[in-house]
Amino acid sequence: MGKIIESFREAFGRALVEIGKENENVVVLDADVKGSTKTIYFEKAFPNRFFQIGISEQDLISTAAGFAIAGKIPVASAFAAFMMRAWEQIRNTVARDNLNVKIVTTHSGFSDFMDGSSHQCLEDIALMRVLPNMKVLVPADAYATKVLLKQIVESEGPFYMRLGRDYTIKVYDEEELKIGKAEILREGEDVFLIACGFMVPVALEVAEKLNDLSVGVADFHTIKPLDGDILLKIAKKANLIVTLEEHSIFGGLGGAVAEVLSEKMPRMIIRIGTREFGKSSRDYLALLDFYGLSAEKVAKRIVEAVKGL
């Protein structure tokens, strides 16, 4: 396992303050989870530009839409699972009118391990990806969170950024990351792991474990628009493609990759993710392992798959 660094939410909270200093148009809206999402830092720095909407995600999203109409750049933040109750508001108001609203959620995937299935959001990528105009990002570490957050605020139109809760494992130093451009972190020919979010460092660990094979790893931090060029380059050289995400295998990163490759360059793909709801656990990594998302379990599945090729 790589080096543990700042958490996703810490990175988000601190980056938001930096962005707020540079851009006076940025306002932040919260659904009474500012201490957990760390938007509280923005509130302390810019109390006039922080708006508490209460535990009402639907009102939160539509109010953010109003700010966007008035020319502000609203960042609407809450837990991923509960932001999804505003899906219809996101569809009919934010996405349909292509409004400049930035939706940033924390506690996604299994990262809210203690709270169990109600809080563990494993469907949001699919729900957001299906919406016209909406762009979807899942940063891999604290650095990627900061860099990509700044970019989505500076880009016009609606964005959904999905973050975890606790520590991140260092993936990047000072690399230049860009919305819509996947990062190849390691080259390989037998197997290529395509991952997003916290599963990126997990994929790197898997590649280390499988030292008998040539294993590549790519970070697809932007799930929509998906980087088709890099994906086709990967598909050309790899015998087996494995997608890895802390999300349902239906409609998420694996779904997006399969959609593109099935039309343009059919390849054997194994989608690794979830098929069911989560459960509570005292430990995040133990929970990932339970659902087959630890480096050990992923490596084992790949070894078995390669035998069968």
Binding site: F51, Q58, S62, T63, A64, A65, G66, F67, K72, P74
Partner: peptide, 10 residues
């Protein structure tokens, strides 16, 4: 809700 957002920005 949208009205509130515009009103707050205003």
């Amino acid at each position: 809700s949208v009205a509130n957002g515009i009103a707050l920005a205003s």
